[in-house]
Design a protein around this nucleic acid. Structure first.
Lengths: 243, 243
DNA sequence: CATCGTAACGGCACTCAGTGCCACGAGCAA
DNA sequence: TTGCTCGTGGCACTGAGTGCCGTTACGATG
């Protein structure tokens, strides 16, 4: 945390990769401590740099902005997601692939509960941080949508469906994550996410979905109509399908 | 646009409501012109204030920040949405109410095509503005989700469903809006939105939805199975429903 | 029409985020 | 040991956003 050097002209760390990691972590830790103690806006970059034992200018060499300290490595995680989607097998159903990717994103939060919980406490009460987090979530959603758009290409309303499915999966992820954070990390988030994505898959796997091999039909019916009328209509729909 | 007063000690507008509107609109216009001409970051608040013929300090009396000039009256529109949802008749289906509200939001963009298109051109290339817009959209989504949560209260996974439905409707809205903007305002956005929300309603009105009066059943079936097997299963499902 | 009170205005000074620049010196290679 | 490299610290600068205050236009009152 704080180093003992008071009269020393300051030890130059950060030359070796190990040193750089140490400086980065010292800055992040000092920042989160100060944010928690006196609030985000009330904390200046000078205070963070001083607490970490480096110059103010160095802070901006490790983090693009004061807000970036709260979201370390978000870009790398997004790149991981992109890679995972690009390397996915096209034989798998698109919704399954996206759901699995969402699980991976959730895992990123779950592997460091203390960090996630501290960040949550901050983002909840600092509007600018909340906005930044939302923007970052939206980037994931865009990546999902792009992947789905490619998979749904040619379908009726394929682009629209891609946008809706991406939004739905992300909504499930966010909902589960929020519940997990509110529970203080106690909830079995992985199971909850899997259950949620399954619900979405069941609801949104409408129109054909398997790329020719398997086709799917969804009938939505108000039960005010007699079951027999329903069956008649469905029968017609099924008979009119190719094969 | 620019006023002739060079030696005058500056005419004091803004005392009357009409004057205030004039100043506000002059600032917004000058800002958008400058943003379009030389970019957002390259434009300083001083330049905007000068171009509008007011002092720099006055700019911040009309707009909280430089970014706020691009999104005028977003707070009021959100308040309108809240009001519309609160005054909705509970006899109507929740998804219908939310879909109609989304139409109202879309109309807000459609009534001023030039403004929307200019804003779109800006938000597309300025990251900070894009983030701000996303955050604002998220606020609508939160309002939708809150309403739906209340309507779905008591249902299994009601909160989750509320989040998913809100996300889906907002996704449809955004998709249609984006297409409309990309088309330069030519697309029949209202019809497209209505068609899209109908699709979402059909897909996500699963589990009971009418509060007891009407029940809905959704069957999702792979057509690899023979149509007859499908019908058998559906028949069983329908027969087992109450009534 | 004259006067008064209000409040928006312009301007100044200040804080702080973020950036360009440069001299310094620690660490590494030859 | 010597020289090169590059992260570092410090300085100076721009620009956003805010607090403060004297000024003054405009509406209200008599």
């Amino acid at each position: 945390m704080s180093q003992a050097a008071t009269s020393e002209p300051r030890p130059r760390a950060g030359r070796t990769p190990h040193g750089r990691r140490r400086v980065r972590s010292a800055l992040a830790l000092a920042a989160m401590d100060l944010f928690a103690a006196q609030g985000f806006e009330a904390t200046t970059v000078d205070q963070i740099a001083d607490a970490a034992g480096v110059g103010r200018r160095t802070f901006f060499r490790y983090f693009r902005s004061k807000e970036d300290v709260v979201f370390p490595g978000h870009d790398e995680q997004l790149a991981e997601v992109v890679e995972l989607l690009e390397s996915a097998d096209d034989a798998e159903q698109p919704l399954v692939v996206v759901s699995r990717t969402a699980e991976m994103v959730l895992d990123m939060y779950l592997t460091e509960p203390e960090v996630s919980l501290r960040r949550f406490a901050l983002t909840r009460q600092v509007p600018s941080l909340r906005d930044k987090e939302i923007a970052s979530i939206d980037r994931y959603q865009r990546v999902f949508a792009r992947y789905l758009r490619a998979r749904f290409a040619g379908e009726d309303n394929g682009d629209l469906r891609a946008a809706v499915v991406a939004a739905a999966i992300v909504a499930v992820h966010n909902h589960v994550l929020r519940e997990w954070l509110k529970s203080g990390g106690e909830l079995d988030a992985r199971a909850a996410l899997r259950a949620g994505t399954r619900l979405v898959q069941e609801a949104l796997s409408s129109t054909w979905d398997g790329g020719g091999e398997e086709q799917v039909v969804v009938g939505v019916v108000k039960t005010k109509a007699s079951p027999d009328a329903v069956l008649d209509q469905l029968q017609n729909a099924l008979r009119s399908l190719p094969r």
